[in-house]
């Protein structure tokens, strides 16, 4: 009986709203957001207890496995480079002329004092590979209709046991995401805004990350320029390029 109702409901919903499945939604989002490569100029504003500071950087990303970031300002961070290849991460600091591999417990440190940890940046597995998603509802955020997806981890080695993502039903862009501990405790929240159309894709130009356990206003990540499918020379994704 129950089964029948479920089938009926789903048929009904598909018919009425053309409601896709959770995985379909995620795939659509993926398609919208990812490109062969992208070059992003951004500024990250970190709100500290005492003062805020803004770091600008340019990142080159190819697929999900390779990424290279160079910090442009403030002067202190200028020339600092970060290279991510597969599951390894190196940082080069020009003042010390050292390449330091971020590994083990250091991955759990925050990136440049932000509310993001290196690890948050590192996990590049496809959401659909490590979580089972379920569409659980519809909500309105800032006047936009969203699907609410709840994701449960399907693999053991994962930082966040579950996530909740709000996706714009029209533009297939996430507007809000929450990360949870195994116990269900909310750990981090990110809110995307300023959704802009770039090269035919909808893209959130501002993301605010917040570690929910810490006090403070979180970290604001603002894209000042984004380009897709550029010619990125392969050599920049090498350790040798860090020192250049």
């Amino acid at each position: 009986m129950k089964k029948v109702i479920v089938i009926l409901l789903s048929v009904f919903s598909v018919a009425a709203y053309a409601q896709p499945t959770a995985d379909e939604i995620i795939n659509r989002v993926d398609k919208n957001m990812s490109a062969e490569n992208q070059v992003v100029e951004s500024q990250m504003t970190i709100h500290g207890r005492r003062a805020s500071r803004t770091i600008t950087s340019v990142s080159y990303t190819v697929g999900d496995k390779k990424s290279f970031t160079e910090y442009l300002s403030p002067p202190r961070e200028e020339g600092t480079k970060m290279l991510k290849l597969e599951d390894q991460l190196w940082i080069y600091s020009p003042t010390t002329d050292r390449i330091i591999q971020i590994s083990g417990h250091m991955l759990r440190q925050s990136v440049m004092g932000s509310d993001l940890s290196y690890e948050d940046m590192m996990d590049d597995r496809k959401l659909t590979d490590v979580y089972s998603a379920e569409l659980t509802g519809n909500e309105e955020i800032d006047g936009r209709q969203t699907w609410v997806l709840e994701l449960e981890a399907t693999v053991p080695d994962i930082a966040y046991a579950s996530r909740k993502i709000w996706i714009d039903r029209e533009r297939y862009v996430p507007l809000k995401e929450e990360l949870f501990a195994k116990s269900g405790q909310l750990l981090k929240r990110s809110i995307m805004s300023d959704i802009t159309r770039v090269d035919g894709r909808w893209y959130p130009m501002v993301i605010v990350y917040k570690d929910m356990m810490k006090q403070g206003e979180g970290t604001e990540f603002k894209i000042t320029d984004i380009k897709f499918n550029q010619d990125i020379p392969e050599y920049i994704f090498s350790k040798a390029a860090l020192k250049q």
């Binding site: 053991p156 080695d157 994962i158 046991a161 501990a181 195994k182 405790q185 750990l187 356990m213």
Partner: peptide, 13 residues
């Protein structure tokens, strides 16, 4: 309190 289990998954209680 927040901690991570053997797999590195965050947990809090």
């Amino acid at each position: 309190m927040r901690w991570r289990d053997a797999n590195g998954t965050f947990d809090a209680a």
